[in-house]
Design a binder for these strands. Structure first.
Length: 492
RNA sequence: CGGGAUGUGGCGCAGUUGGCUAGCGCACUACGUUCGGGACGUAGGGGUCGUGCGUUCGAGUCGCAUCAUCCCGACCA
């Protein structure tokens, strides 16, 4: 059942796919480019959802749900937006099947052709803005802040479990505001929510910044992003928050009467994170033994493996374990006693490591005699025998420590793989080794494009709040003047 | 859509220059011994070799066609 995974150092992408499948998170579905998220993987996603949902509500957003199908005409109102998504849309053209007159199963009934095709949403801006039009009349109606948890479909050419699938789960927030400033503040607030979530729950350091105009969301005036570094040095965009200006308001004619009674277009934002975060979690922390889950997101924080030969030993160990379990559960932790009697302890150890459970507790006859337990931590693989007395408090502290240790390890990795680079020759070489390069950029799309063509590297973001980056210099490629450094990397 | 590769029990694979009852590992079933880092023994069950056509006395093996999947590229908040 739980066989070895490919070594991370040998083939990073193979290691990743192996791990996702073998740790029981997800698997390829028979449907092209789609995946099945398995219960263990979904449990992690549910934890993410719960935490994010609470944060959204703190900011005043409310959950809602909008249709899966978007009439083609809605979709095409915002020119840039349609250009950005046109190439990857699934389109519904018919609504009925019939028995094949020639006897080959079922075929599409040609008579059921839709007058107007329906697009399966690749994102919901258009359907939501056509709805908001009816909701917004007066300044009193603003702001409107809705979030929806949904699935979207993007017909990607090439897919990868969690990182890029044809269908994926996400949350998308869509807000409408009376002023530009308020909308921009909202966009910033939400990217900060994402950054906080990444750091404090996923234990994953991220850089917050603006996308270059080239890399912006289709139809946005500004795109804020959180960029994380995976263990192969590649960048992963983990969440985005867009300031949409009045583009959608104008396309969908969403106006409100301000306090002076004048009609004005509203200002918009949208923001989202997806199941891609699951991939980020795997790639940010996993090792050759499997997943390493931060306690804050682990569906099982503590697993207990009883070791016994006789029924007496078995029940004695279980009794002790249940005491510890109750104590931990009372403190809000999720605990599992792995009491499967068909598997040997060594097998269970390996299996729970593969699944990334942060803390493992083992107890056997020896411990019963000495009043001890064996504690193993997943992040460092350290094993310790400690007194049974007070073990619940020990574990609680340990969970906090593991959360911090995982974050610091990832932070340390990232920091040692970020460097300034001022020479084009050096850039070409270093960028291929992975990691982020902080370079001067002249701000033009041409330069950005050239660099991408020659090295595959893109501008991941123009960092906000980074003192290191604010300095004068010259563009690494064109030699033109620049007043700040931006983050370059090869990305997923 | 260009370049490369692969389709053989649930999974991973072997199968020589065509040759007779199609193998191996894992998983599965039963029994026994085990159980503090992925147990072992014995006995079992399961595949017509992606699909179609052809060559041949004989095809998993050769040829053609077709379908599917994977990798690289193009594409990609």
């Amino acid at each position: 059942m739980a066989d070895q995974i490919t070594k991370r150092s040998e083939n990073y992408s193979q290691w990743y796919s192996d791990l996702v499948v073998k740790a029981d998170l997800a698997e390829q579905s028979p449907v092209r480019g789609c995946m099945v998220i398995k219960p263990y993987g979904y449990a992690i996603w549910e934890k993410m959802q719960k935490i994010l949902d609470a944060k959204f509500k703190e900011t005043g957003a409310q959950n809602a749900y909008f249709p899966l199908f978007i009439p083609k005409s809605f979709f095409s109102r915002e020119a840039e937006h349609v250009a950005g998504f046109a190439k990857e849309c699934a389109v519904v053209t018919h609504h009925r099947l019939m028995n094949d007159p020639e006897g080959n199963g079922v075929v599409v009934d040609p008579a059921s052709k839709l007058e107007e095709e329906l697009i399966v949403r690749p994102t919901s801006e258009t359907i939501i803005w056509s709805t908001y039009k009816n909701w917004i009349k007066s300044w009193r109606d603003l702001p409107i802040m809705c979030n929806q948890w949904a699935n979207v479909v993007r017909w990607e050419m090439r897919t990868r479990l969690f990182l890029r699938t044809a269908e994926f789960l996400w949350q998308e927030g869509h807000t409408a505001h009376a002023t530009s400033q308020e909308a921009q503040e909202e966009a910033k607030r939400m990217v900060d929510v994402y950054a906080d979530f990444a750091r404090n729950y996923m234990a994953m350091p991220v850089i917050v910044g603006h996308k270059s105009p080239n890399e912006r969301f289709a139809g946005a005036l500004d795109t804020l992003t959180i960029e994380a570094m995976m263990q192969d040095g590649k960048a992963l965009q983990a969440g985005t928050s867009h300031f949409l200006g009045q583009n959608f308001a104008k396309s969908f004619d969403v106006q409100f009467a301000d306090k002076e009674g004048k009609l004005q277009y509203v200002w918009a934002t949208s923001w989202g994170v997806s199941t891609r975060l699951m991939g980020a979690l795997v790639m940010a922390h996993g090792d050759d033994n499997g997943l390493v889950l931060p306690p804050a997101l682990a569906p099982i924080e503590v697993v207990m493996v009883p070791i016994y030969r006789t029924d007496e030993e078995h029940s004695a160990v279980l009794a002790k374990m249940n005491e510890v379990k109750s104590a931990l559960e009372a403190a809000g932790h999720s605990v599992k006693i792995d009491d499967r009697d068909t598997l040997r302890p060594g097998f269970k150890f390996a299996e729970w490591e593969l699944k990334g459970v942060p803390v493992r507790l083992a107890m056997g006859a020896r411990d019963l005699q000495n009043g001890t337990v064996e504690i193993h931590r997943r992040d460092t693989l350290e094993k310790k025998t400690i007194p049974l007395e007070g073990v619940d408090r020990y574990i609680e502290d340990l969970l906090v420590d593991i959360q911090n240790t995982i974050y610091n390890k990832a932070l340390d990795y990232r920091n040692t793989h970020i460097q300034k680079c001022d020479s084009w020759e050096e850039f070409k070489e270093k960028i291929q080794q992975g990691g982020f390069l902080l370079c001067h950029w002249d701000g033009t799309a041409e330069t950005e494009q050239k660099i991408k063509e020659e090295t595959k590297a893109t501008i991941r973001c123009i960092p906000v709040d980074s003192v290191v980056c604010k300095e004068e210099g010259v563009d690494i490629y064109s030699g033109k003047p620049s007043h700040e450094r931006v983050v370059f990397a090869i990305s997923y």
